[in-house]
């Protein structure tokens, strides 16, 4: 096991911001941590990066407690590195920034030149290798920090919103490099994101945090947005021209989730009392036990869970146009 969190608590000025009774994270996998702003994602990553002291409980990193001496902690830290959301680049060239972890680990970095070059080129920053780290844009800094983590040789890389500052055309490049790193070297990756689609695209497993606690349900169909009130009808626009009607006392920023079992899938539009009806195409189908998990793109991805029997009886397949219907009441507001 890579990490085992046992009764982990973190508080700032007496306010508990993270409370995880138990969480096990396996080696060589990609994990995504999702959740609204302020839900404790960064705190969790900082704890896993071993740079934040625990308020209570313990974390086992590869079976060893992180509560040991400073020297033991330093040894444990060598196995993990952390890419912050706004990473810091030292006042030195991009190349020297990338070489820094090799110098710290007393690795003969000249022999690793090909590794460094490959990391730079995979992230599309070879042409700025000679520039000063401070003069770069936020997105470039983030890519340099990723390259720095990649060459560090750490078996575990933690990433806080790794594509938050990166322009759209480079997001794919970063995601691809993360997957390659995991496949080629078996590097364990744990990243936080507010983009649920990205979480499912990259991760083997998704962990959801709400208010510093693990959410029990599998975090599917979760959206963040602003609840608005239009003539007494509450709704949240989750994508351009996709607004979910819901029931809530709240207005303003919120997180909502829709139980995949409560969504009705049909081949045509059905007349019902349900307030939410959308059409879209099936993008993915997965079998899970006796059930089928169908992902439909209606402008956003919605996951629907149905029995194998009903799935096959309807003759659905990837690419097929379908209708999704669900009640305003089946949207849970967090």
């Amino acid at each position: 096991m890579l990490y085992e969190l046992l009764d982990v608590k973190k508080a700032y000025d007496g306010r508990v911001v993270l409370d995880v009774p138990r969480l096990a994270i396996e080696e060589n996998k990609i994990y995504a941590i999702v959740g609204p702003n302020g839900s404790g994602k960064t705190t969790l990553l900082r704890l896993l990066a071993l740079i934040e002291p625990l308020t209570g409980g313990d974390i086992l990193f590869r079976g060893r407690s992180i509560g040991g001496s400073a020297k033991e902690l330093h040894e444990l830290r060598k196995g993990v590195t952390f890419v912050m959301e706004n990473p810091y680049l030292f006042h030195m060239s991009v190349r020297n920034n990338v070489l820094y972890p090799l110098k710290m680990r007393s690795i003969a970095y000249r022999s690793l030149n090909p590794v460094v070059e490959r990391a730079l080129s995979r992230l599309g920053i070879s042409d700025i290798a000679g520039s000063g780290g401070q003069s770069l844009s936020a997105g470039q800094k983030q890519r340099v920090a990723l390259a720095r983590a990649f060459v560090s040789g750490a078996g575990t890389i933690l990433l806080d919103e790794p594509t938050a500052n990166i322009d759209r055309e480079n997001v794919g490049r970063v995601e691809e490099s993360l997957i390659l790193l995991n496949r080629e070297r078996g590097t364990s990756l744990i990243f936080s994101t507010h983009d649920l689609a990205q979480a499912y695209r990259l991760a083997d497993d998704v962990v959801m945090l709400i208010d510093g606690r693990l959410s029990g349900t599998r975090p599917e169909n979760v959206f963040s947005g602003i609840i608005t009130d239009r003539n007494g009808t509450k709704g949240m626009e989750v994508a351009q021209s996709v607004t979910f009607e819901l029931i809530s006392d709240k207005t303003g920023p919120a997180y909502i989730s829709i139980d995949p079992e409560s969504i009705i899938i049909s081949l045509g539009e059905i007349a019902s009392s349900a307030r939410n009806t959308f059409s879209g195409r099936i993008v993915r189908v997965e079998e899970e036990g006796g059930r089928v998990r169908v992902a439909v793109n209606i402008g956003v991805i919605l996951v629907v869970l149905l029995t194998k029997k009903s799935f096959f009886s309807m003759g659905m397949n990837v690419g097929r146009e379908v209708w999704l219907t669900f009640k305003a009441l089946s949207i849970k507001v967090h």
Binding site: I51, H74, T81, M84, M104
Partner: peptide, 18 residues
């Protein structure tokens, strides 16, 4: 000095002195 300097160094394998 930016708080991230120390943390960045630590997460990149530096010991307390480094």
């Amino acid at each position: 000095v930016d708080k991230r300097v120390r943390e960045t160094a630590l997460t990149l394998g530096a010991n307390a002195k480094q």
